[in-house]
Design a protein around this nucleic acid. Sequence first.
DNA 1: TCGTTATTGATATATTATATCACCTAGTAG
DNA 2: CTACTAGGTGATATAATATATCAATAACGA
Lengths: 152, 152
Amino acid sequence: MQTVRSIINHAEKHCKSNGSRLTQKRKQVLEGLLQSEKALSAYELADYCAKKFDQSLPAMSVYRILEFLQQEQLVHKLNLANKYVACSHITCDHAHDVPQFLICSNCQRVEEISINKSMIEELQLNVEEAGFHLASPQLEMNCICDQCIDKK
Amino acid sequence: MQTVRSIINHAEKHCKSNGSRLTQKRKQVLEGLLQSEKALSAYELADYCAKKFDQSLPAMSVYRILEFLQQEQLVHKLNLANKYVACSHITCDHAHDVPQFLICSNCQRVEEISINKSMIEELQLNVEEAGFHLASPQLEMNCICDQCIDKK
DNA sequence: TCGTTATTGATATATTATATCACCTAGTAG
DNA sequence: CTACTAGGTGATATAATATATCAATAACGA
């Protein structure tokens, strides 16, 4: 179990070695995502930062910061939910596999798992046959999690 | 190659046998999707209907109509793009497999293909192991199509 | 320290979507 | 045939997500 702080430290080194900077505000946004169980929207992150750090952060800035964090592969955007999550492999130095996100459409909890390589290859084959090319091999699946099923 | 008209006729029968009605406006929206190469937003559909049928259709109505058409399985919502497409199996009476949508993130062209059953099962297994359950087995993949690649 | 570049703030506006109430129209019962 | 009812549509307001643009500020290198 890694602390939020240690992950952020790792992220900061990662940025430095890339020649980019993990500023205060960027850390705050990343922290917001790291401490959250579920995916958050840009506006939710703005609220989080405003409350937690007692200093308003315009939504516009959050969007810019999220864009930066995505470039640095520290954050993923879940296009199914229009929300954002911290990458779960920040502290692994190796490039990670094709990420697969399971998104609970009820509580927004997100699980990031990795799919079998051979499966991706087969998928990719299907895609190529149809005359398309995978842009981002990220897969997002609309799910319900155990907890939410139990509640119903 | 089926005409738009014949597909709409088929859809109308489908609705009748379901005890629902494919009204004028609903036909117009469905036609908008059928004649389009690419996925359309609700507002784009409203524009299409306004121009083509010379009578304004409020966006609100389009949303309601799209909801109806989805219930009737005549239309799919692409959550990746926040846009809508006509189901490509309207004239097949049998229930179709797990749909897989390839969405060109450049031109919004969409291809609907069907995946291997065994693959879906494997996917499902992965999902269950993580404590989640597939809500809709529809898969959407962010792609670039051949045409757009060539242009670049 | 100066100037350049990267970062953030502020404001406006676009795009997608939902809530709500009023009106209208097609099918139904009497 | 008429009045009733339910389903369908219009109108309006507003929420939620996102982008464009210009100004202000902070960090870094020469």
